[in-house]
Simulated scan of single mutants.
Amino acid sequence: MSGDRILVASALTREAFAPFGEVLDVGGRDARPMNGDRAVRHHALAAAEASGPDARIILSIAVSKPVAHPVRVTMVERHPLGSQAFMPLGDGTLLVVVCPDECGEPGRPQAFVTAPGQGVSYRAGVWHGILAPIGERQGYLVVDRDGPAINLEERFFAEPWTVRMPPSDS
Rank of each mutant, 00 (worst) to 15 (best):
A124W: 02
I130C: 04
V76E: 12
H43W: 08
I57W: 10
Q84R: 01
V142Q: 01
L94E: 12
G21I: 02
E159K: 12
P166F: 03
G21Q: 02
L24S: 03
S168K: 13
A50R: 01
L152Q: 09
E15N: 08
V73C: 09
G147T: 04
P167L: 11
G92M: 03
S10H: 10
H79V: 11
P160Y: 12
E153Q: 15
F20D: 05
E153A: 09
R123Y: 05
R123A: 14
M34C: 06
A62M: 14
E105W: 02
A46P: 00
E105I: 00
M165R: 09
I57S: 11
D91N: 12
V23A: 11
R137W: 04
A124F: 02
P160E: 07
A48T: 12
L141V: 14
G3C: 06
H42M: 06
D146H: 08
L81K: 05
G104A: 08
V113Q: 03
G92Q: 07
P106V: 00
M87L: 15
F17T: 10
Q84T: 05
I6S: 03
D146I: 01
A44L: 10
E49I: 07
D144V: 00
L131W: 03
S168W: 05
R78C: 13
K65I: 00
S170N: 11
D30Q: 14
G92R: 03
Y122D: 03
C99E: 02
A31E: 15
W127M: 06
A11H: 11
D4C: 07
H69C: 08
D146M: 06
L59K: 02
R72P: 00
Q138S: 07
D4L: 13
I57F: 10
V76H: 11
H79N: 11
R38C: 07
N151H: 03
S121A: 15
G129C: 01
A39M: 14
D91K: 10
F157I: 09
G3Q: 13
D25N: 15
A16F: 02
G104R: 07
R123D: 10
D54S: 09
K65F: 02
L131N: 05
G92A: 06
L89Y: 04
P116S: 04
